[in-house]
Amino acid sequence: MRGMLARAAENVYWLGRYLERAGNVARILHVTEQLSVELRGLAPGLARSLWLDLPKIYPGAIVIIDPNASTEDIAKQHLRSFLLATDNELSIAASLRSARENARVVRENLTRESFEQLNQTFHHIQDLTNKPLDTSMALCDAIKKIQVEIFGVCGAVDRTFARNEGWSFLNLGTMIERAFRTLMLLQVKLPTLMNEPEAIELPIYYAHLRSMLRSVASWENYRHIFGLDLDALQVLRFLLFDRYTPSSIKACVHALQLNLNSLNDGEIMTAPSRMLGKLSAKLMYEEQEIMAEEHLDHTCRDLSTSLMEVHDSVSRLYFSV
């Protein structure tokens, strides 16, 4: 069986990561703005801290803010930076630019429809840099539109990409990025969430949990199972161990295993397969122990580290031939 060009596999992998990242950022910006507006009157400090959490969820993000600015201005600065800033490598514009660069390099592996959708989205976000977008509402509208377009790109890719090696690498990139971002979100939000509900007002506590679930597109999925029963530990357990919600760690690890298996033809146990096997077993058999741990944020950090090791191992095995 002929293999895929190693460099092309790496580009497809990163295409998956950048597309996922762009979609994630768009979603979290939108959710943060909604919650921040909701809380501005009730809990101004919390409303402000929601924005200041963003660079922690996206380490390496550069957001220049005026510390004396109002919460609304802080919001605008973050929205603009994470939407358009070229010096913020984690902005949607930067992710789409990188996704497109990777797609251009492996264009022969993509269908015309996929490339066109991505290219069109890239040009739209470039056009936005020339528009005033001087209010949070204008920025949010633009983000919403771009988010819909990113869905269009992912849809085109999903419907047309051949289910070959390239598809597996694309999914590996997507899933690692998704799992990593869920874990970063948990790490940053856990200290607030693990406070007793009494420590903050109950409606705020619920709004916080709801928005966290929405940040990883899991709110409706959660409700289907638990109805209106919102509890921090339950949300945490859901985002770590639910097998069916696409952003949960267990679901991501499962998808990673499937894609790695298809690359190996199920025959050889490679280094990243072994790593994922261990991770999967931990999530399968140690749920109670993990949930009983005192420092769950440390657990999330360890899981992130494991995922980064999987990334390194995939890179060594497949991209550095």
């Binding site: 069986m1 002929r2 293999g3 895929m4 060009l5 190693a6 460099r7 596999a9 090696e165 690498f169 690359l263 497949y318 991209f319 031939v321």
Partner: peptide
Amino acid sequence: FMRTTRGKQ
């Protein structure tokens, strides 16, 4: 040879 994910081809 080219460097592929399945070794040199």
